[in-house]
Design a protein around this nucleic acid. Structure first.
Lengths: 348, 348
DNA sequence: AAGACAAAGTGAAACGTTTAGAAAAGGGGA
DNA sequence: TCCCCTTTTCTAAACGTTTCACTTTGTCTT
């Protein structure tokens, strides 16, 4: 029962360790009879190859590192699931590092320096473990590329934009454009927007999409219709209130996440504004709760699973060095639910 | 820039590899001057120790395997976060295996045999990778203990009950009892229950808690008040309907998950039954949406993070073989929200 | 200055595999 | 039966560390 290795097998089967290795990996022909004998011993002794030794010799670990800023954030698990999906097909294993950003430093931006250290430590550890590449999931890609490249390992970012390395993202601007397009197709022309914080790239891209659609459809751009929130439910609540109290309020609002959309919904409900009859709302994220609120929220679903798959696919091709460049962009999907209807004014 | 190892350091610093190793690990005294010289070379050559080689020699990988049936299921990420929390303190790394049960076989119970194979393969792979122990997160602990024990590695289950190994669970029965207790304290005496599928252990435990509280407070046990659902929103909707249509309906319902509670809420709302004025509802799970529905749902929060911590703590003590037995049970917490109030009949 | 003892440094084996290159065995035709 | 070619098997080095047992160096006491 103690530590059986290839040597023990060899001894007991009266062959050399080389032969056992060949049987194990099928790297060379082995006479059927010998093979059988070896396999029998392997079975008897409950032998299991030691991947550590294997890795040392072969210089391949079949393992990649995945660094997540926070595994508990709503969109991360699905990305990991996507990575896994693709990794499984290539027998790649995942060494997971959870930075636990939120719990460790909260949203305290003054501690961002600490965070850089966490991230770099994480990379260091993974490199020591000889991962063949790294995928980073999060919004703060903190100076990791140089570190990783020093050791000739590839890194792929997802859920964030990295300008010094491959990053897998979805079509943010297009999705926003499409959402507005959808509202227009329902007959809306007075469309407001509640954005997230403007230091976030998705906010800006989504705003671009909104703006692009507006000009394209020759709709008036009213500065009063632009509200900047902070991603939180309360800000959605407050800003929806501001929009509704305008002399001539919008008939539809594009809200850049479901949380703020939920706030907007609550605000409307309290003011007796009936959604979708009096006001249409489109959110972003397709958070779980969006389906359960009443009315349920029409929202833009992010292609998280596909992002995971593509991130892994890109990494895999970098690892194999086949020069193939993966540059697909997974697409968002609009989930139609109850919070959008034709505006009342648009006489049916 | 090519593959620098301890030998290169040794050569360049004019010492033996042994000395370099001692510098690196502080395993023995090294003259400050020598040490400095070695460290300088390490810096210059950008040397990073190879943990694979280290592991081979030392027979320790500082890595555990975590097997999750589905990382995307709502409660899993938080458990992983807990595992991580504790693992970090001991510099343990996590090799994550996601079985992807739902996506691979759905809830098709005829394919459960396939699933057993997935699970056992996962364990096999992890063992080959020389993990020092395994944590299994899920509801179907499929004959894994024997396999793992064959190689003298410990395994800990969580989120499920395993009768042949350590498993970390929360106080299901007590939580249910407490919830009923809470309702009673609000003045309720006619308390119905919508349970999950009865082949699930939590369903039965929660039912026990419910029953225990009823008898303890000498409340009538009315079989009509007991409804068995299937954990889905629709079943909550339907069964709440059945309860409300009783001649003398309950004034409160203990619902065994938030999804069914949301269904119950919807049913009540459609029937003009005002929650919590006419009906109180308590859920389980503290799902994200529970806070955003109106009324928001009072619910039992599962100690997921703590379960992760304890699972890892148990595993760590098994690995170190210090004989310490961890048998704490993390506790649920009742989150008071809007869906519970005193019954109208209970004259204030 | 010599001796004794502690401290620092070294050489080499070992961990469990893979894989060249070499040797041995098998098989077919004459 | 012998030779030659193919197939199978073996020997041994290598992967990058750690660590044991040993040697060398340094320091203190007298």
């Amino acid at each position: 029962m103690e530590k059986v290795g290839i040597k023990d097998i060899a001894a007991r089967a009266n062959v050399s360790t080389a032969t056992v290795s060949y049987v194990l990996n099928g790297t060379r022909n082995v006479r059927p009879k010998t093979k059988e004998r070896v396999l029998k011993v392997i079975e008897e002794l409950n032998y299991r190859p030691n991947d550590i030794a294997k890795s040392l010799k072969s210089n391949r670990t079949n393992t990649i590192g995945v660094i997540a800023e926070d595994v508990t954030v709503f969109n991360v698990p699905e990305i990991i699931d996507g990575i896994n999906d693709y990794a499984d097909r290539y027998d790649m294993h995942i060494l997971l590092t959870n930075l636990r950003l939120q719990k460790r430093i909260g949203y305290n931006y003054s501690k961002m320096e600490d965070y850089r250290k966490y991230a770099q430590d994480a990379v260091s550890n993974l490199l020591s473990k000889q991962v063949e590449g790294i995928i980073y999931i999060g919004v703060h890609p903190r100076d990791l590329t140089g570190l990783v490249n020093t050791y000739n390992k590839p890194i792929v970012y997802t859920y964030c934009y990295a300008n010094d390395a491959k990053s897998v993202q979805y079509n943010d601007e297009q999705a926003s454009y499409d959402a507005v397009n959808y509202l227009v197709s329902k007959g809306h022309s007075r469309i407001g927007v509640i954005s997230g914080l403007m230091d976030s790239i998705p906010s800006r891209l989504r705003f671009n999409g909104y703006y692009k659609a507006l000009t394209e459809f020759q709709l008036p751009f009213d500065p009063q219709f632009i509200k900047v929130g902070d991603w939180g439910l309360d800000s959605g609540y407050r800003l929806a209130g501001e929009l509704l109290s305008l002399a001539d309020p919008p008939t539809a609002i594009l809200v850049m996440n479901d949380l703020m959309a939920a706030g907007a919904l609550r605000c409307a409900s309290e003011q007796g504004v009936v959604v979708p009859r009096d006001l249409s709302i489109v959110g972003f994220d397709n958070r779980e709760f969006s389906a359960y609120l009443s009315p349920s929220i029409t929202t833009v679903e992010l292609p998280l699973h596909d992002m995971g798959i593509l991130a892994m696919k890109s990494l895999a091709s970098m690892i194999s060095g086949d020069g193939e460049v993966i540059d697909e962009t997974p697409l968002c999907r609009l989930i139609e639910r109850e919070s959008v209807a034709a505006p009342r004014t648009a006489g049916k």
